[in-house]
Design a protein around this nucleic acid. Structure first.
Lengths: 226, 226
DNA sequence: GTTAATGTTTCGGCGTGCCGAAATTTCACT
DNA sequence: AGTGAAATTTCGGCACGCCGAAACATTAAC
């Protein structure tokens, strides 16, 4: 009785997590955006959306929008809890780095029982954030509302610490590591160059801070708390 | 690139592991025994055996026998390595008991990448045996030949230590725990009652050893080293 | 040696989830 | 408002792995 009893299929969980992820980032959830995020064909996505609607996980307006229902959101939190606890576990216990954990957690999140997840949570001391600063939902589906701001949307002069990285790309994460932009690092927004130009920041403690020029991709990915 | 690249399906791995397990225990591998072990229908098993033969993992004589090929055995070792390392990991790192690990490892063994398995092996110090005393194959597919004997097949008077439990049933494992029959425990075969009667054993160190009467199910499950 | 019981395989069918091609709807532009 | 491009959905089809029922092979028993 491993009580992984009657979980939705791995596919269903993947879709729900993807929909949540897009919504969380303020991206419109459409067949197109989902198709792109999941790397599937439009026809597959269309079919699955219909199925999710039948399952009551999603409300779907044909040719228009997709939105999680309360049930769908609840499922998303469950999956996210598993995913993020696994990521942290891999880093804390198995010496992974933050750029390596995502694909591994992706595969494991569907195979892990609720019992195992709670063992892991206990082992880690019931942590609240994963290695990328993403909040870990509690077992009963409560998530912290983020109080952080994207670097993108902050006025020059702002100083804060890096609180979250909204990306899983391991190249990008390694780039950040290599330039001192890890979780908790001090960062100051100096100026924004016009016409989509780079964001100029100073990273590190006052004295030995280094200046970096961040493109929109990174500036739209880093969140700070100040 | 989590290089879990192109693993056989979870089903194929399950069949191969089951076939190996039966062979290891000296049970004839037939449609019937496999059907029973996997809890599937005879027609499903028949179909999959044909497929395994096409994949070159198994030689199949119609209406007769099923046997792993070298490739099949190699795959079985890979799966067994994952399974057994996971079981030990759950016990050592996540405070599972030996009667709880099997179903969990069953689900995880297909989802875990080779990298993760090597991280786990390293974390555990490259162990050679899982919590039930089963040998863990090395990464390149070498397994220790067991030098243990089933309690069943040992003459009265023999003394040894419990080296392996050929069962995954959690009730049985808890029974063993509750009666001091854990890995490494000293055990002496006192006498075999006739006509399928129980095996009389003394368990524990000389002074405070306890006498137990073991039915065939347990006697055929415990291996000792002497 | 024939026969009946037992074990194995074949057949048709189902559910899931994927795809490409074709049909449909929406949207943006004139 | 009309039209063409872009997005979405429908359709037919495929691979996988499961099942029950029916056909078939093997074996044991008379």
């Amino acid at each position: 009785m491993t009580s992984m009893a009657e979980r939705p299929s791995a596919s269903v969980e993947d879709y729900v997590r993807a929909i949540y992820g897009l919504t969380e980032r303020g991206v419109a959830v459409t067949n197109a955006t989902l198709t792109q995020r999941l790397g599937l064909s439009p026809s597959s996505v269309s079919g699955m959306i219909t199925k999710l609607a039948q399952l009551g996980l999603v409300t779907h307006i044909r040719y228009r929008s997709v939105e999680l229902t309360a049930d769908g959101r609840r499922l998303a939190y469950d999956v996210l809890r598993r995913h993020r606890l696994l990521e942290l576990f891999l880093v804390e216990v198995l010496d992974y780095t933050w750029d390596e954990v995502h694909p591994e957690a992706d595969a494991l999140e569907h195979a892990v029982s609720d019992e195992l997840i709670e063992h892991i949570a206990a082992k880690l001391g019931h942590p609240t954030h994963d290695p990328h600063g993403d909040p870990i939902p509690t077992a009963d589906g409560v998530v912290e509302k983020p109080t952080t701001r994207l670097l993108d949307q902050v006025e020059p002069g702002t100083i804060g610490t890096i609180a979250r990285v909204w990306d899983t790309d391991s190249e990008l994460l390694r780039y950040l590591t290599d330039h001192g932009m890890t979780l908790g690092a001090r960062i100051e927004v100096v100026e924004r160059k016009p016409f989509g130009g780079p964001l100029v920041v100073r990273v590190g403690e006052a004295a030995e801070a280094e200046t970096h020029f961040l493109g929109t991709e990174i500036a739209g990915t880093l969140s700070i708390r100040s």
